[in-house]
Amino acid sequence: MLTTHLQHFWMMGGYAQYVWPVYFLAAGILIGNTWSTRRRMQQTKRKIKHWLERTA
């Protein structure tokens, strides 16, 4: 019962090949950007720490 519902949902009325790639691309862009934003903050803090140690 549930699987047929999910299958029906996944089919997207025959447009699955158009709808899902767009949703996955959007997820990739949004998550990728958020991840890179976080990583840059951590890297920058580390870089400043090194820089302070060298100049101190």
């Binding site: 950007n33 958020t34 934003t37 903050m41 920058t44 803090k45 870089k47 400043i48 302070l52």
Partner: peptide, 24 residues
């Protein structure tokens, strides 16, 4: 995203100031 990124750049630009030193 924009706020978070600007904050990162701000830390780097202001790395000589006391408040950034204290924060890091």
């Amino acid at each position: 995203s924009l706020l978070a990124r600007v904050r990162t750049d701000l830390l780097w630009v202001e790395k000589r100031s006391k408040w950034v030193t204290a924060l890091v």
